[in-house]
Every structure is written in structure tokens, then in C-alpha cells.
Design a protein around this nucleic acid. Structure first.
Lengths: 206, 206
DNA sequence: GTCTATACGTAGATAGAC
DNA sequence: GTCTATCTACGTATAGAC
């Protein structure tokens, strides 16, 4: 029985930390912040509820960490799209593709975000992260829309309204996807009616 | 001191019942089902929490009544649009107008619905109402989209995907409106960037 | 019809054993 | 590092007074 080294301990710590976050995402996505119990997360992560308090100071802290990660991921798409080479339309298309793929592949992340957006009762820090990263995505989209209008690729009109509409559509698709997940969790044989990039972009296309 | 008549008592009952529902809508819209305490509703309705149990059997019962009313209201628009005279496009336009107006004028109703859609933790009956009325709206929209396609007014393509996209857009607009309400509750001087009917309909227009 | 006081359950968080 | 036992607080729902 050799004692664990410092590195091994650190590795265990990191693993547990990650386990809690993963379990938290799954549970918060389904139930929302208030309805989620620490014991739910503990059960999903296969550990005692006491152990969670060894890694996080509170339920709030777990939630904030998750919201921050989720929003950071969403903001990355926006930054990438802005910095990419190509026409404004190509970059808008790229952004839309990444967002739709994100919703398809990681609906839980979008679920927690949408939940958080509609709830007054979340921790202040979570709200701050939501605003901070959210405005980043919004501003990036607005810039691309304006550039697209100058290039004649995006329809004319109030760019704020158009950006807002596009942004709303993405959020709405996230909701629909999540609430469908709930009704038919693993339906794979059904025809694929998921929204295509070109359909979503119709709202902006000149 | 004349004793109250049966009618007067009934009137008081109805008033209280309605007070609780109104207070419930306001509170549930902000906090969601789980985070809302009975005492919150009681405070908003200016009555003791005990009295709520005189009119409703439980917190769940209050919630279900609210969800049912909200969804019923949404379904009415869809039914009206279906039965209206005029071309498919005119009726789609009518539906869209009513939905956007509903979001603008009664965001709390849409807030509770969107909250409910994204949460696993709501009462079974509320879930059932959500499904029942929701599919009514969805089916009505699908019918109009198909008729519009036959008339060449709605763009060609998978009608299910298009309906789903339009439906998602409306839900997304509801979320955006609600989460903005939260950030700047009574901002009236700002320019109006709310989404116009024609912008929303771009997603369907041929 | 309405309120206040209370019972009961349970969730968040801590302490101490291993 | 991890678990179990426990404390404390609070929310739902009821009972009984007015």
C-alpha cells in the first residue's frame, strides 16, 4: 500500500470536480436551479452529498461554475466567427452552424442557459455571467449583421431588430429541442425535422 | 350588520380565487414553480398563506390552473386563425400578429409557459395541459403552412421543419422579452426594437 | 371567510469518523 | 479523500380561534 503522491491526489481532485460539474449540468438542465437538490447531483455523480461540499462551497457555487462554462462555450463561437476570414455572410453562416450544432450535440448546456434566462431566482453571479457573455454574443452578431447589410447580403432594415430576431430564433430552437428531449428522450427512428442552417438564416438573408 | 347573502359570498369567493391566480402568475413568472413559495403568492395577493389553502388544495393546484389558463389563451389564437376567412397567408399573418401582441401585452403568461416548457419538475397535470394545447397550436400552424405552400405564399420545403422553426421563433421572442423585462423592467424611452410581424414571417415567406 | 399557531417533512450545510 | 450522522432552517399543509 504505497501512499498517494501529490500528483495523484491532484488528479483525483480534478476528476471529482469535473464529475460534479457534469452531474450538475445533467440535473440542472432537467430541473432548474431551485428544484435541484444537492443529493440529486450527488446521486448523479455517484458520491455522497457531503463530498460535494468538499469541492464547492454551496449549491450556488456549483451552479455558477456551470453557467460560466456554458456561456463561455457559447461566446467562443461568436468570437471565432468575428475573427474568421471571409465575407460577413460566410461568417454569419459559420456562427449559425456552430450554434445549431451546439444545440444538437449538447442540449443540456443550452437548457441550463435558457432556464437561467427565464428565472429571477438564480444567484447574482450567475446572472452576471449570463449578461457578460450574452452581450458578447449579441454584439458579435450585430456586427456581422451590419457588415452583411453593407455588403448587400443581409436584408435591409433595423439591424438591432434583425439581430434580436435571429438571437431569439436560436434561443427558441434551444427550447424546442430541450422540451422535445423531455417528451421523447431517445427517439432516433423518426424523420429528422431539425432546423437547417439555411432555414434559420432566412430571417436575415437579403 | 346584515348577514351576507349567498350571492355576496360567492362574489367574494370568485374575487379571492382570481386574486390568487393573478398573484400566482406574477410570482411564478419571475421565479418558476419550484422557487415560488406559497407565502410569496399570499404576500402578492395580500392575504395569509392559510387562505390560499381554502381555495386551492395545494401549490400544484394553483400552478396547474395558471398553466391551463395561459395555454388556453394561446390556443384560442390558433383556432381563430384556422377558422378565419381569407388566404392562408393572411391567416398566418393574423396568428403571428396575435402571438406577438400577446407576448408584448402579457409577458407573464408567456414567461410561465416557457418556464414550464424547460422544466422537468412541474406537476404532471401541468405537463399534460402544455402538451394538449401546445399540439393544438402546432397543428394549426402546420395546416396554415401547408395551405400557404399550396397557394405559393409560403416557401417550399419540409412543412414540419418550417412550422417548427416558426414556432421556435415565437418561443424565442417570448424568452427574449421576458429576460429583458428582468434587466430593465420599465424602460419606455428607449427606441423600439421589438420584432415586427413581417420580420418574423420572413422565415416562412416565399 | 380569514387569520395565527403549529406539525411535519425535507433540504442545505457541517462535523467527525474512517 | 470520502462517508455517515447530525444540526438547523424553512416550506407545505393543517387545525383551531375569531
Amino acid at each position: 500500500m504505497s501512499p498517494r503522491t501529490e500528483e495523484q491526489n491532484q488528479k483525483i481532485k480534478d476528476e471529482r470536480h469535473e464529475q460534479i460539474l457534469q452531474a450538475g449540468i445533467a440535473v440542472f438542465a432537467h430541473k432548474g436551479f431551485a428544484a435541484t437538490k444537492i443529493t440529486d447531483i450527488a446521486a448523479a455523480a455517484n458520491m455522497s452529498h457531503g463530498l460535494i461540499y468538499h469541492y464547492f462551497t454551496s449549491k450556488e457555487a456549483v451552479y455558477v461554475a456551470i453557467i460560466e462554462r456554458a456561456m463561455q462555450g457559447a461566446a467562443v463561437f461568436a468570437t471565432e466567427a468575428l475573427e474568421k476570414p471571409g465575407t460577413a455572410w460566410e461568417r454569419l453562416r459559420y456562427l449559425c452552424e456552430r450554434q445549431l450544432a451546439g444545440i444538437r450535440e449538447h442540449p443540456e448546456y443550452y437548457a441550463v442557459i435558457v432556464q437561467a434566462l427565464t428565472s429571477q431566482d438564480i444567484p447574482e453571479e450567475a446572472h452576471a455571467a449570463l449578461q457578460r457573455f450574452g452581450s458578447k454574443v449579441y454584439m458579435a452578431t450585430l456586427t456581422l449583421v451590419q457588415q452583411g447589410q453593407q455588403a448587400g447580403q443581409v436584408v435591409a432594415g433595423d439591424p438591432v431588430e434583425l439581430t434580436y430576431a435571429f438571437y431569439s430564433l436560436i434561443q427558441g430552437i434551444a427550447i424546442s429541442t430541450v422540451s422535445q428531449l423531455r417528451v421523447r428522450p431517445q427517439e432516433t427512428t423518426d424523420n429528422d425535422h431539425s432546423i437547417k442552417v439555411d432555414t434559420a438564416l432566412r430571417i436575415l438573408k437579403a
